[in-house]
């Protein structure tokens, strides 16, 4: 794990994201290719996107906790046009955007794209796992179809 960057450096690493004091841990995790989801120290429930308190028990004792990134696609759409990103070329084909039910907790979801398979294979119900690509020079979490036996 690299040295944690200060707030100023963090903002510079993600100029395309609106980072707040509530979400800074999430993006610090990205720099180490770790998906850190807020977990409540009091009631143990995860929540996402990051909030200042646990929405369940209102505790402010939250620990950004690494999750496996494994899960099942819950929502799936395919953008024929959309916001620009250096790794996305809409002319080459639809860009999949999925919302994944993470295995850590029912209804805990993370949204991103899917790589490593033909776009036709991206479907609701597909088991996926986390992987990382580079976007604007910083790590960006994405999903790929789950490979049997991999952790």
């Amino acid at each position: 794990m690299s040295e944690p960057v200060d707030d100023e450096a963090l903002v510079k690493r993600f100029p395309w994201v609106q980072i707040t004091h509530d979400s800074k841990h999430l993006f610090r995790g990205w720099l180490d290719e770790r998906l850190l989801i807020n977990r409540c120290d009091n009631c143990s429930l995860f929540h996402h996107p990051p909030k200042p308190i646990c929405p369940e028990c209102w505790s402010s004792n939250l620990t950004p906790t690494e999750v496996s990134g494994r899960g099942v696609i819950h929502l799936a759409m395919f953008l024929r046009q959309g916001a620009p990103a250096p790794d996305v070329d809409y002319l080459k084909g639809p860009h999949p955007v999925v919302t994944v039910d993470l295995e850590e907790q029912e209804g805990l979801r993370f949204s991103s794209t899917v790589v490593g398979c033909p776009v036709e294979d991206v479907k609701i119900g597909l088991e996926v796992e986390l992987t990382w690509i580079e976007r604007y020079g910083s790590p960006f979490p994405v999903f790929r179809p789950r490979t049997e036996g991999a952790s």
């Binding site: 395309w16 994201v17 609106q18 953008l79 959309g82 916001a83 620009p84 990103a85 996305v88 860009h95 955007v97 919302t99 949204s111 991103s112 794209t113």
Partner: peptide, 11 residues
């Protein structure tokens, strides 16, 4: 308004 442009994966 926000200063940041959206990303393709923004829900």
């Amino acid at each position: 308004g926000t200063a940041k442009p959206p990303v393709p994966e923004a829900i």
